[in-house]
């Protein structure tokens, strides 16, 4: 009798625990949107999203976030171009080519990469990549390429981890079927295993995009942070995330609301990315 009431009690505990995270996400949604949406309405969605001038301290103030949207998309795209081939091939190597000895060393190293605080990555890029970039292309060395390179490295653990497990989950029978026809190990892996792991690999890329677009502290150190639409890859950019961090400390009134509205846009991006992720995952199940 006592154990039954205890079970009932524990059930409630579990429900509360489960509800906490859902509650958190709902609260975040509510406060971000209620803080940002009125501003967007007032300023005009089109002016806000497609205005290319961000000048909160001018008179009149201008709050166009197109430069930041472009900046976020560019560094994310750059990160994908750099991170995806390296990540997917690393995962392939780990799952299908490395021997146990190398694996035992490599795998924890990659896991460690995931645990390094992003500011440490940023600092590394600041003292190592930025000077190199300065010598190569001139200027401050803080530009789209630097930020892309940094983010490309930072999304590696996400891409490698998920890709590796999806490659490993491809049935061994596919591999046997392929080598049974006289295919080499390399050909079997590249033409049968990888295509079969496609949906998992794409999921990993999408999570990587989510990570890259949301990254802030590392990017702030090396991206240059100029709020303008860049005309070349060697110019600095400001992303949606860094825009918020840079100015939130002193912003007030409309400026502050504009920053919250920036967060709304970022949030919508993340929701879209997660939506795509879910759709792909569901399609893979069928």
């Amino acid at each position: 009798m006592k154990s039954k009431s205890f079970e009932g009690f524990m059930k409630i505990v579990f429900i509360i625990c489960a509800a906490t995270s859902i509650l958190a996400i709902l609260l975040i949604c509510y406060f971000i949107f209620s803080g940002g949406v009125p501003f967007i309405m007032e300023y005009g969605l089109k002016n806000f999203l497609f205005g290319n001038k961000w000048a909160p301290s001018h008179s009149p103030q201008a709050f166009g976030i197109l430069p930041m949207i472009v900046g976020s998309l560019l560094v994310t795209l750059g990160a994908i171009i750099i991170g995806v081939p390296i990540g997917v091939l690393t995962a392939t190597y780990l799952a299908k080519f490395s021997n146990k000895k190398i694996y035992r060393f490599l795998k924890p190293s990659i896991n460690l990469m995931a645990g390094i605080p992003s500011i440490v990555y940023g600092f590394f890029a600041l003292v190592v990549v930025v000077p190199v970039m300065r010598n190569l292309v001139g200027g401050t060395g803080m530009n789209i390429i630097t930020a892309s390179l940094l983010l490309g490295i930072m999304i590696l653990p996400t891409i490698i981890g998920l890709s590796e497990s999806s490659i490993r989950s491809v049935p061994e029978s596919y591999y046997e079927g392929s080598v049974g026809l006289g295919a080499s190990h390399e050909r079997a892996v590249m033409t049968v295993i990888l295509p079969a792991a496609k949906s998992g690999i794409i999921s990993s890329v999408i999570l990587g995009i989510g990570r890259a677009i949301g990254e802030t502290m590392a990017v702030i150190l090396v991206a240059g942070n100029q709020p303008r639409i860049p005309s070349s890859l060697t110019q600095g950019v400001r992303t949606l995330t860094t825009n918020i961090v840079l100015e939130m400390g002193y912003a007030a009134e409309a400026h502050r609301e504009a920053l919250i509205a920036t967060a709304v846009v970022l949030f919508v991006f993340i929701l879209l990315i997660n939506g795509i992720f879910l759709i792909i995952k569901r399609r893979a199940m069928n």
Partner: peptide, 30 residues
């Protein structure tokens, strides 16, 4: 080359997750 000369059919059908055509063409393409 040996496995090209001595083919194998497995216990559990294991077609590749691709079209029928590509399944059959896989060996010749290899």
């Amino acid at each position: 080359t040996l496995r090209k000369r001595i083919g194998m059919v497995f216990q559990k059908p294991n077609p590749f997750p691709m079209s029928i055509y590509d399944n059959i063409a896989y060996g010749p393409r290899t």
